[in-house]
């Protein structure tokens, strides 16, 4: 089964290179994550992959067809959960699914037969006749996910599917995505929640300024780009300043130290000497933990705000 493969993808708007030569391919049945700060090019990558914008250079194949030339047909095999909700506010829950199915050329009877099962999956059983504006944010996202499944796609594109949701709603979406992966669907996910990527993605790419700066499984990416352990040291301005401590003393224990305000992040391979040292520093509090994807992300893309 062909999924999505992209090679040498380039796209500029004026002088701004949004995509600067991307190459990647999804393996059937995997969840592949695209991670990056705002403006990294994630959404543009998805738009190119779906044929909604033409790249300046590069080749794309989606579901076995060349894109953008045959993108419209390729989208028959794809389900899409967009970043912004665009359910039809004038329709009920069931009408949203029925009308969307028609865009795929599906007969009303075929879609109607699938609606109970789709609503069950989305945790919206019994809500078929509810109006969209009576649904919570989490319910709308789940309905958008159900809508993306109306054509029983092989491949799912999800653009920041849990942004703006509360933890309960996020966990439910994650649960459903895992079920879809178990059914053998291939998933392309963009997110800037690192815990989401670590939980769901078999492989991921961190992108910034239109290029990949790391790719692999979450463990591989962490192992390749960062020290295995982190001690976060917190202090207060004045007597027990973590920043001053870090500038004067942290270097002898940690491979790398990053300071933001009154927090020092100490990245290290051997944590015991620093832990012993901190045990005697009563003004400083600390947290010792394994390095995670967020550490890699911040190391590679920097701590500056991206607006």
């Amino acid at each position: 089964m062909e999924t999505l493969s992209v090679s040498g993808l380039r796209k500029s708007y004026g002088d701004l290179a949004v995509l600067a030569g991307l190459t990647f391919a999804l393996r059937p049945g995997e969840c592949y994550g695209l991670l990056g700060p705002n403006g990294a090019g994630k959404t543009t990558t998805l738009r190119c992959a779906l044929g909604l914008t033409a790249p300046d250079d590069g080749t794309i194949r989606l579901a076995g067809l060349p894109v953008p030339e045959r993108a419209r047909e390729a989208r028959r095999r794809v389900g899409i959960v967009p970043q912004m909700d665009n359910l039809d506010p004038d329709f009920t829950v069931a009408e949203n699914l029925l009308v969307y199915g028609r865009y795929f050329g599906l007969a009303d009877a075929a879609v109607s037969a699938r609606i109970p099962q789709l609503l069950e999956f989305a945790g919206l059983a019994g809500r078929a006749d509810a109006k969209i504006n009576t649904l919570s944010g989490g319910m709308k996202r789940r309905l958008t996910l159900a809508r993306a499944l109306v054509n029983d796609p092989d491949l799912l594109f999800l653009d920041e599917p849990t942004t703006g949701l509360d933890p309960q709603a996020r966990h439910l979406i994650w649960e459903r995505l895992k079920q879809l992966l178990q059914q053998g669907k291939t998933v392309l996910l963009t997110t800037h929640f690192m815990d989401e990527a670590e939980r769901l993605c078999h492989r991921l790419a961190i992108m910034d300024k239109g290029r990949f700066i790391a790719e692999g499984s979450p463990r591989e990416v962490i192992a390749a780009h960062i020290e295995p352990e982190v001690i976060e040291v917190y202090g207060e301005p004045g007597e027990s300043s973590a920043a001053e401590w870090a500038r004067a003393e942290a270097g002898q224990f940690a491979t790398r130290v990053e300071i933001t305000g009154e927090t020092a992040f100490c990245y290290l391979t051997e944590s015991r000497p620093l832990l012993r040292h901190l045990a005697d520093r009563h003004g400083l509090r600390y947290l010792h933990r394994p390095a995670n994807l967020e550490d890699v992300f911040l190391k590679l893309t920097g701590r500056d705000l991206r607006d």
């Binding site: 039809d88 865009y103 795929f104 809508r147």
Partner: peptide, 14 residues
């Protein structure tokens, strides 16, 4: 405003 067109363009519609 409603982004209905975006939703439709994600289906096999030109």
């Amino acid at each position: 405003v409603q982004r209905t067109w975006d939703a439709i363009l994600n289906a096999p519609m030109a």
